[in-house]
Design a protein around this nucleic acid. Structure first.
Length: 492
RNA sequence: CGGGGUGUAGCGCAGUUGGUAGCGCACCUGGUUUGGGACCAGGUGGUCGCCCGUUCGAGUCGGGUCACCCCGACCA
């Protein structure tokens, strides 16, 4: 094995180092020279674009429209909602000047002190405030509601420690913001969008998720309820992969967004917001990858099939012709396929490289095989190879892609389910949490026990999960009665 | 902001008691190769993070400074 790729067998020793190197080696992204920021490379961006397109269609099916709001937020907007400002103040980048000038020695620039802004502008950490300030002008009557808006954009949060895709100072995301006439409608919408995220995660990313609601301390700043999808990475840690918030009338009141209802009485609008980010890329990588590199679900792979010819130069024209035929037929079945007949890389290099990049299916067309009418098919998820008749290979591959999509989801789900434990004894919990995994434990509902667990084990309450049997019990920390069991894990 | 560590070629690193900078990968040229990360030959590329000091002489010693990384606190 080539020296520079030895790291790929070291996953268990240092998962986070392995993750970082994989992201770079697979050509997804790299650290920027700018502090805490990330350069998303073409291959990584192609995957993100595919995610965007699918999510965007899913949003639109629920009536959501896209729009765009400014990057810069006047400082006073952020201070209108007390909890919101409390939550974000610590990590905001601030624009204080609007001009530079050349320095005295004329070999550089300095900030022009004369160009100080009267009111500083904040680079958006999230857009609730500027959007609700705009909604004030858009909403006058119950007939204007519901207002369902989404924007694809970047946001900036000045994080202390960053990690490619999982936490960067600037990240790309989508943030949906909706306004409703009633509490019920807003709550329903918040839950509806969580379902959309869960659907996307499981059916496209092949990442199984636990849906649930956050505890009070883990709630989004300014929300009454925060819903979440939690995925389990291969090291047993949790990754919050999407959130949807029911914001009550907090922003309606803070930005004075009132409408006249059917009885001609003024009411404050009810709000939701919901978002997923490039962090999903991290979830994708850490859920499926193996020691050979990335494993991509066919639904999101920019290239689903790669065809590699093997033959002497004089055999290439014949191989090219056959391969191009297969390419054409696969494209007719809406399969994205790449024929790599470049002669500056040897086949072995190509095999390893496309495996590293997670291409779901590899076809090897050899001169020897062509004579016998067969072709080698390798599936990335299991690395199994088999020889298949060239006749009808297109349909075979098409079916195989479906099979891979289902298989990697099942594999991830089996892994996760095997690492969800029920636990009612705190001493046992403290011991077992060290090895990762999700723990279902009774909780008395107080933030005191929550804080104690975090302090003593670095694990947090990820959510009160939906769809599990809830029964009364005894809190494992405090010994007080518990009404519901919660999901506890260490998290990214 | 605490506790560690690192700055030498695009990347990863070596550099002895101070003597004028090297290795692997990558890259370029030519040739031979091509069924699991090819080989041979030749070649390009560095004000050793920055500043000051000691010295005939500093990558190496001393002082300062900056940047980055890892472990915590904060977080999608």
């Amino acid at each position: 094995m080539a020296k520079e790729l030895e790291f790929l067998t070291k996953r268990s020793e240092d998962y986070s180092k392995w993750y970082n190197e994989l992201v770079v080696k697979a050509d997804l992204a790299e650290q920027s020279d700018v502090r805490g920021c990330m350069v998303i490379k073409p291959y990584g961006y192609a995957i993100w674009e595919k995610m965007q397109r699918i999510l965007d269609d899913m949003f639109k099916e629920t009536g959501v429209q896209n729009a765009y709001f400014p990057l810069l937020i006047p400082k006073n907007f952020l201070s209108r909602e007390a909890e919101h400002v409390e939550g974000f103040a610590k990590e905001c980048a601030v624009v204080t000047h609007y001009r530079l000038k050349t320095n005295e020695t004329h070999d550089g620039v300095v900030v022009d002190p004369a160009a100080k802004l009267e009111e500083e502008l904040i680079i958006r950490p999230t857009s609730e405030t500027i959007i609700w300030n705009t909604f004030k002008n858009w909403i006058h009557s119950y007939r204007d509601l519901p207002l369902l808006i989404n924007q694809w954009c970047n946001v900036m949060r000045w994080e202390m420690r960053t990690r490619l895709f999982l936490r960067t100072s600037e990240f790309l995301w989508q943030e949906g913001h909706t306004a409703h006439a009633t509490r019920e409608e807003a709550e329903t919408r918040a839950q509806q969008m969580l379902k959309v995220y869960a659907d996307f995660a499981e059916n496209y990313m092949a990442v199984p998720v636990v849906q649930g609601v956050k505890s009070e301390t883990e709630r989004f700043a300014g929300a009454l309820d925060t819903y979440t999808i939690e995925a389990m990475m291969q090291d047993g840690k949790a990754l919050q992969s999407g959130t949807s918030h029911f914001l009550g009338q907090n922003f309606g009141k803070a930005f004075d967004v009132q409408f006249l209802n059917k009885e001609n009485k003024p009411e404050f609008a009810w709000a939701t917001s919901w978002g997923v980010s490039t962090r999903l890329m991290g979830a994708l990588i850490m859920t499926h990858s193996d020691d050979n590199g990335l494993v991509l679900p066919p639904a999101l792979a920019p290239t689903q099939v790669v065809i590699i010819p093997i033959g002497k130069p004089n055999q290439m024209p014949e191989l090219d012709q056959k391969a191009n035929e297969i390419v054409k037929n696969l494209k007719a079945l809406s399969v994205s396929v790449k024929y790599d007949n470049s002669d500056n890389k040897r086949p072995g290099f190509k095999f390893a490289d496309y495996e590293l990049k997670g291409v779901p299916v590899r076809l090897v067309l050899g001169a020897r095989d062509l004579e016998q009418g067969i072709i080698e098919v390798m599936r990335r998820d299991t690395l199994e190879k088999e020889n298949v008749n060239i006749e009808g290979i297109e349909q075979y591959v098409h079916n195989l892609l479906d099979d891979i999509q289902k298989n990697i989801f099942k594999k991830a789900k089996d892994y996760r389910d095997a690492h969800i434990y029920e636990c009612e004894n705190y001493e046992e919990f403290k011991e077992r949490i060290k090895d990762g995994g999700f723990f279902l434990c009774p909780w008395d509902g107080t933030s005191e026990t929550e804080a104690q667990i975090k302090e003593e084990t670095q694990a947090t309450i990820r959510c009160v999960p939906f769809g599990i049997e809830q029964k009364p019990g005894i809190d494992m920390v405090s010994g007080k009665p518990s009404k519901a069991r919660v999901l506890i894990a260490r998290a990214y």
